[in-house]
Structures are given as C-alpha cells and as structure tokens.
Design a protein around this nucleic acid. Sequence first.
DNA 1: TAGATTTTATTCATTGATGAATTATTTTTT
DNA 2: AAAAAATAATTCATCAATGAATAAAATCTA
Lengths: 166, 166
Amino acid sequence: MRAGIERVAARMPSMPGNDVLLVRLLMMSGNTVADELENLLRPHGLNESEFRTLVILFSSPNGSAFPSELCQFATQKPTNMTRITNDLVERGLITRMPSEQDRRRVVLSITEQGRQFARRLLPILFPSVSALLTGFTDKEKGELGRLLTKLVHNLDNLLETRGAPT
Amino acid sequence: MRAGIERVAARMPSMPGNDVLLVRLLMMSGNTVADELENLLRPHGLNESEFRTLVILFSSPNGSAFPSELCQFATQKPTNMTRITNDLVERGLITRMPSEQDRRRVVLSITEQGRQFARRLLPILFPSVSALLTGFTDKEKGELGRLLTKLVHNLDNLLETRGAPT
DNA sequence: TAGATTTTATTCATTGATGAATTATTTTTT
DNA sequence: AAAAAATAATTCATCAATGAATAAAATCTA
C-alpha cells in the first residue's frame, strides 16, 4: 500500500502523500476490524448492523425504541432498519408493536430471549477486542482515542460545511 | 455512542469498556471517511473500489496488471474485480487483453484517457484529505500512523492465528 | 506423456444496503 | 375545521459485494 501511494505521489507532485497514506491506513484498519467483527458474528446468525441494533436496545434504559431512533444511533437508513428489525423480530429477539401515542410510530422492544442472547454473545467478542489492542499501553490507547476523536470532529465540520441539509 | 457503551458496560461487569469504545470509534471513523470519499467520487461516476483499482493501475510502473494482482492490492474478491474492470473498460479508462504468456490470464492496462482522468480527479480529492487532518501537528500524524500500524499488525496476527488458509 | 491438481477468471444466485415512491398519521397553516 | 405540509415507517427497484460453481489453461506427479 505504501509503495502504491508513493508511486502516485511521484506522478502527482502536489499530492499530500503522507496525509493520503494516513487516511488510507485509517480506512483500511477500520474496515478490516469491521470485517473481523462480521466474521465473529456470522456463526451466531447476525451481521454487524443487526448486532449493533440489538445491543442498542439491550443498553437502552427501558429496552425499547422507535425505528427512527435506532436509525440514528446505529447510523442506518430507515429502509435497512426495517429489514434489520424484521429479522430480529423473526428470531424472537425483539417485538414490534404499534405506538399508542403516535399511530405512525412503532415500538421495538427487546425480549427476555434477546437479553439472554446479548448476555451470552457479548463476552464472546471481548477477547478479540482485547487482542486487537495487545501491546498498547494505557497512554497509547488514550492517545489513539484522542486523535481519532479529533479526526471525527474534523469530519463533522467537513460534512457540515457542505452538505448540511438542516 | 459513549453513553451506549457505558450502559452496556454497566450490565456486563467483565466488559473491557474503554477498549470497546476505542474499537467502535475506529470502525466509525474509518467508515465515515470511506463514505465521504464515496460522496466525493460519485459525481465522477466512480465508487471507491473502482477508483482504487484505477489508481493502482495509474501508479503501476508499466500501467498494467492482472486481475488477481489488482484483487490483492485493492483488497477485493475476484468476482467484484470482474465487475469493476468491466465498468472501467466500458468507460474507456482501461483495456482488457488476453495474456500471451499465460492464456488463463488477462492483462488490464490503463489507457491514456484513464491517465488523464486520474490526473484530473486526484487533485480534486486532496483538499478533503487535508481538511480531515486540519489541526494535526506532524508529530500527531506520525503518532496516529504509528498506532494504526501497530493495530493493523495485531489484526494480522489475529487473523493468522485462526483462519490462516495458507 | 497421461492424468490429476492447482490456478485464473468468469458467471450465477444471494445478501446487505440505498434512494425514490407510497401510505398512514400528525402537525401546521389559513 | 379544512387544506396543506411534515413526519414515520414501509415497499419496491437497484447497486455493490460475496461465495459457490464453472471453464479453461497451466503445472505437477506418477
């Protein structure tokens, strides 16, 4: 990868080569971690977005939420959230009920079975997370978190500057 | 996000909460950057994998490669590489020719039109890359690079320990 | 050298996610 | 209160990517 970027940089003198390299590295590492998580989840019949949605409900104080809320927290589009929750309902991990206050809405609630599933599944994932950060000192973890947070902040500004449709 | 992870941690005493937070942050930032890149490329009729493939050919010394090589450098599966290169061929950015040395193979070569396209497109993307790293000192960039590289290294070990099919 | 094995690229069926259009309901405006 | 606008969730058509199966050629092996 480094070699490729250096070759491009050689042809594009104005290119901020190191920055490009860094951004590629970020995309690559994030993506590889996500793939790895998918692989861990697959044997349990969930993909990453379904898992994330379930965990959001599991962690929510009253165990329920509206689809639009889940979209926000899980960064998913409504279309996909419909698919995700269909799937979770079919597996008996959540329920879908019409809201009484607002009849356009739907209330999604985690079931006891869903809670058990989450409590069983989460610890299975922890070792991989720890393995990923093997050899990192607390200071390094803190630094990585700080730098990524800073970067996300820049990203927010970038997105807001242009496409802010609000 | 932090709140959600803290809520889960409260229910899962054994959970390495900070590590999970850090890994989520990594996935999230990588993914958001990738989405942003997709948005920048869309008006030019390319998605990220097509762009990456084209740039690999652009940066290769002789401007050509076999599909299997491109798969490796662009981290794509052969199936998708067929689709990608079909698309690039249709747009006249690359050519596809049978190899004479090994008749199973196919030689993909960037065209002059493809080179022009790359030279025009790349500078359009640089400002965003720079914006992403606004406020980062050289030292911070170096540190972020070092930490991500370390993490990728852990990932490699993790993948190798288990699923190593070689 | 003949037959088995591995490699290379492709096609096909399926999964996951998205945008645009649709339906039902609520909120705002007049 | 009636009409218009906004909001919520869903369906439908489509795109991007994957794994499994296939076909063709090269390489290994006996």
